[in-house]
Design a protein around this nucleic acid. Structure first.
Lengths: 198, 198
DNA sequence: TTAATAATTCGATATATATCTAATTAGATA
DNA sequence: TATCTAATTAGATATATATCGAATTATTAA
C-alpha cells in the first residue's frame, strides 16, 4: 500500500462521526437515512462521510430499489489496520544489516521472546526477569491511566499469565495502582537488571 | 480503548509528515533537529508533530545532554492498530449476545428470503414468523414516525401482502400505532423466536 | 555567571474539512 | 407521462490544523 492510501485510510478513521457510523454498521447494514437518523445528522453529511469510507475501502453498498444499504468490510479493515506496522517492520528489516547493536538486554529479549513478540516463559532469574518486565513496561505510555481490564488485555499480548506479570510490574515499581487504575512510574524509578537486591 | 483515544491515534497517523517521521524512527532513534533536517522542515513543526505522536503513545523519548532522542514504540503501534477492529468485533458480539438465536435466525432468513431480500412467503410456524418479522422490523429506524402510507411501502419491499405483515408487526409488539402513525418499539419489547405463547 | 544549543511556545496564515441548506439527480412507481 | 423518494451535488460557514518566524525556556558547557 502506498503512503497516500495509508493516509486516506487513517483519515477515514480519524473522525468521531465516521467511527460511530462504523460501529452502527458493525451491528447490521443500514441505509443513508437510517444512519442520519441515528446520529442526528442530515443526509448530505452522511453522503460526505460514506464517500470517504468508500474511498478508504471500508464499506460496500448494495442497492435495493431506491435505497442504498452500506455494509462494513471487516476483513479490509483488519488487513489495512496492520499495514503501517508491516511497512515499518519492512523498513526496519532493510536497515537491520547496518545496525549491529547487541547488548545484554537484547540477547535476553531474543531468547525469551518469540518472533511474534510473545514471551516463551517468564524468566526465573532476577536479572532476566527485570529485563523482561522492562520490555513489557515500554508497551505502556507515561501519564496514561489503564483500568484493570485494559491492562490485562495489553499484558496478555506478551503472556497468558497476565496476573503474575501485572503483580511483578507493581512489585518492581514499573507501575503503581491507585483505585484499581494502573499507571507507569517515571523511568527514574524503574530498576535496572544490573541492580542487586530487591 | 475510549473512542477519543482511538480518534487521536488515527489522527496521528493521518498526516504525511508524521508517517515520514515514523518511517525515519523505524530505522533508528533520532533527535528533533535531525528529523527536521531530513524532512526539510523547521524545528517548531517537529515539536508540533512529536507532541501528537507522543500523545498517541507512538513514541518515547530519551534525553542525552541537550538533545532529545525519539524512539518508535512498535508494540503500542501494533496493539492500537487492531483496537478498532477489536472494538467492532465486540460490538458485533454484544449485539449477537442480545439475540442468541442469530444463527438459527440466519438460516431461517436464508430460506425465506430471495437474494434480493424479498420474502418468498410468510412462514406459518410461529418461530419462523417471528424471525421474519424481526428482520422486517430492522428495516425501520428507532425514534422515527411512519405514516401508514409510508410503512406500507416499506413493508411492500419484502412482500406484497403488506397488510398482513403490518398487522403482525403490531400484534407481536415490534411496533405500535398511535393516531395512524407507526413507530418501532424499543428492542427490549421485541419477542424472540424462543418465547412461547402469544 | 555567562554563553551556547536544542527544544518549545506564541502568534499568524493558509489549507483542509465537517456540517448545513437549497437545488439537483437517479431510480422506482403509478 | 408525472410523481415520489433517496441520494447526491453545490455553495457557504465554522472549526481544525500544518507550517512558519520570532521570542522564550531548558539544559549543558565554559
Amino acid at each position: 500500500m502506498q503512503l497516500n492510501r495509508l493516509i486516506d485510510f487513517h483519515k477515514a478513521l480519524a473522525d468521531p462521526t465516521r467511527l460511530r457510523i462504523l460501529i452502527l454498521l458493525s451491528h447490521s447494514p443500514l441505509h443513508g437515512q437510517a444512519i442520519a437518523g441515528k446520529l442526528g445528522l442530515k443526509p448530505p453529511t452522511i453522503t460526505h462521510h460514506m464517500t470517504k469510507l468508500r474511498e478508504a475501502g471500508l464499506v460496500t453498498e448494495r442497492r435495493e430499489r431506491n435505497t442504498i444499504y452500506f455494509h462494513l468490510k471487516r476483513q479490509e479493515l483488519e488487513q489495512k489496520s496492520l499495514s503501517l506496522h508491516s511497512l515499518l517492520k519492512e523498513e526496519d528489516a532493510n536497515m537491520k544489516h547496518t545496525n549491529v547493536n547487541q547488548n545484554y538486554n537484547d540477547s535476553i529479549l531474543r531468547n525469551f521472546l518469540t518472533p511474534e513478540g510473545r514471551l516463551r516463559s517468564i524468566p526465573a532469574q532476577r536479572k532476566k526477569r527485570i529485563a523482561i518486565l522492562q520490555h513489557v513496561a515500554t508497551a505502556f505510555t507515561h501519564g496514561q491511566k489503564y483500568p484493570e481490564k485494559e491492562i490485562n488485555q495489553m499484558i496478555q499480548r506478551f503472556h497468558d499469565d497476565f496476573a503474575t506479570l501485572r503483580r511483578e510490574l507493581i512489585m518492581h515499581q514499573f507501575m503503581y495502582r491507585d483505585k484499581g487504575v494502573y499507571e507507569l512510574n517515571p523511568v527514574e524509578m524503574w530498576p535496572t537488571p544490573e541492580e542487586t537486591g530487591s
